[in-house]
Nucleic acid binder design. Structure first.
Lengths: 233, 233, 233, 233
DNA sequence: CATGAATGAGTGTTCATTCAT
DNA sequence: CATGAATGAACACTCATTCAT
């Protein structure tokens, strides 16, 4: 019970965090507006550019320009380019599972259907959005920013895995799935969609239109393949 | 006789030496002439550093130093940093792949088994080695070096996809697999192993031992899930 | 009163200072902000060094140092070494020429006199100054920097030729000169003064005083020889 | 007399020099041929390249390659690139006036005709040939190689000036020319043809065909303009 | 003698970071 | 607070010169 409680507490915290998020503040006084919004505007600009060009290839001057301030001002809010990068990742690490997890918990019905629905939801709410660039960013720069990698693992990967794990386990418990190794199967579910995100932000853009993957179709077929592979008999 | 004997002995020694360590033959001179070995040594050093630090963050001088030569010497063998990278890819990905593809062509038997075998082979020969860092590197830096990305797509990705595609198609033609969309299924096969490689070179190292994925087990189960999912009835 | 007087005196001084040496106004700060003056100072420094050592042999760092700034600052104002050179040419050759050409247009009188006057003016305003080193420089390095050569031809040579051509043609039309081939005659006018410039910046300095050419006398006599050679009867 | 004798002696010397010139040796033994010819071949290759690209832009490796030897071999014969440059200039400083001077001395007739003939001869024998690149080279690099400039002045310029001076003086003495300042007039004669050489090796090649100067026509018209300008009445 | 592999100081250019105003 | 001019340490790449063979 304590565990569950503390888990809820953490969840709440992160929800609160999301509200206090400087990107979305209560309407401030006109005079202070600019000042308070600065960091958020810089982070937003930086997110775009980091995702598009990577950490090394993004110039702070460009970030500042896109945020409509001077280069010097950027360093007033972030002590270094690395610091800015960390802030970008931290700020955008809104786990797309917080809300989704609740819905999943209330889901009544076949786990196979749930799995397919979950993956499609994940794609629509996260994978298809700009924010998914964060995942690419983290995988790309993990070795240079191990602390961010750990942060991401803890805040995003593990909750996501827990969610998928619970669905798979429920499917097995209900006799809907064969008793496979859940820890391994979990990656069969997650890997392709994470890969999709990586692809979208790396090699995808340099492939001709004829070779583009249709994400929804791919996810649907993949989910069905897996569910069929998991089903008993 | 003694003289002759000792002479023979020396001869043998140097022959042995050559077999044991061809990189260090006879007393090495300050200015060694090893035109034959240089490119290989440089490629090896470059592989290590590119994998470790990424393309942009690796300085050519470092590569040269690790190969035991000066900066200028590197440019004697490779006309640019990009050229060096291409050589690394050619040497470590293209050549081994060509060899592997030939073996697949000769395979007689169930396509399901072939699929599993292919993925495991791919893991042992490539995924498990440091060379697989190249794949991570490419995905990380593709947007900044479109020429490299195109080169990789053309030389590595497309041949690999063609191979998997042919196996899936054969399976369908032989009635072993259901007539799924091959272009989509292909990614269900490849994505998880590529993701495994990404993971290994990014977030993997910051996970505790307890959360490590056992690659062989994962690949085996994944292949079987897919094959089961693909099988008719 | 003394105070006021001395104050006035100081004010006057600084006004004078500004007139005498606008480069050193008020107490200079370590990090001076002189966006207005910088380009001019850099162009001036570049002119000196280009003339002295040639384009290729001049290092941008040296130019920056002579202008009292760092290497990076130079690139704040000029995007490349070639760009800097073009600015030097524009500032020192193109602008003054445009002004001179206007005066020629207003000249009323004998074309023979005009020719002599033009050549002498050209010498005083350009040939005799260090700026004329640019012409030598261009001829020396034209083959290596075709873009610069084309730029110079277009911006300097052709306008100058057009000017001389127009004077010759007018002389012929007015019956003051014989109807010679204007395109050839044009070079008889220009070549000697350009040669004078080349000489001044190449072999001249290594000739003993006794062999120095007096430019004004030479130009005067040359002009008169030509005019006499061009006159009818 | 002594003067004249020593002058002749020097003339002979330089003729002898020309014969001993490694570029044109008596047929040597086959075995030694290569060795003896090396420096000459290198100098020839270097002349071409220095003329074409200037000193700084010519790479010794290119010179060696054009001469068919390795880079190392070049340094066997010339201790440095500068040394090679000096050898090129020295070796090619065959005064085109040695033979011409004799012919001029024997000329009987109008000095005006002689002047025109001299300039045309000079063009055909020197200006139009590859060797005229030397003049361009020297003017371009004079400031970097003052000793070569002095050498050139002494060996080429002064004899040439003496020749032209003598013709002008004779013309004045014979009442064929007006008594102008000979030292100045001399440059009116020489400058245009030297300029022609500079032009040919610098900006000429980057001008469109329509703007090319026809050398013979220019020299002819220029000579006639001058002679007319010099003639009395 | 001739080679050519190796060197390393030097070049133009970029960009995160600083700091006087 | 905000600016933006200035900095200087890098970096990829070049090339005259050396020297072991």
């Amino acid at each position: 019970m304590t565990k569950q409680g503390s888990w809820e507490y953490i969840t709440n915290q992160s929800v609160i965090k999301q509200c206090v998020n400087p990107l979305d503040p209560a309407p401030p006084h006109k005079r202070e507006r600019r000042k308070q919004e600065r960091p958020g505007e810089l982070i937003e600009a930086a997110l775009d550019l980091f995702v598009e060009k990577g950490f090394a290839a993004t110039r702070v001057e460009e970030v500042a320009a896109r945020a409509g301030v001077s280069k010097g001002t950027l360093f007033l809010y972030f002590s270094s380019k690395e610091d800015l990068f960390k802030a970008v990742v931290r700020e955008n690490l809104v786990s797309p599972f917080v809300q989704g997890a609740a819905e999943v918990g209330q889901f009544q019905g076949h786990c196979g259907e749930l799995l397919e629905w979950m993956l499609l939801q994940w794609w629509h709410r996260y994978g298809a959005t700009k924010t998914s660039g964060i995942s690419k960013l983290i995988m790309s720069e993990a070795t240079n920013f191990p602390e961010l990698a750990a942060f991401y693992r803890h805040e995003v990967i593990e909750p996501a895995q827990a969610l998928v794990r619970s669905v798979l386990q429920r499917g097995i418990d209900q006799g809907e799935f064969r008793p496979v190794d859940v820890e391994l199967a979990l990656h069969s579910v997650i890997a392709p969609v994470l890969f999709l995100v990586m692809w979208k932000h790396s090699l995808g853009p340099c492939c001709p239109a004829s070779e583009q993957i249709n994400p929804e179709e791919f996810i649907t077929q993949h989910a069905r393949l897996l569910v069929r592979g998991l089903s008993p008999v």
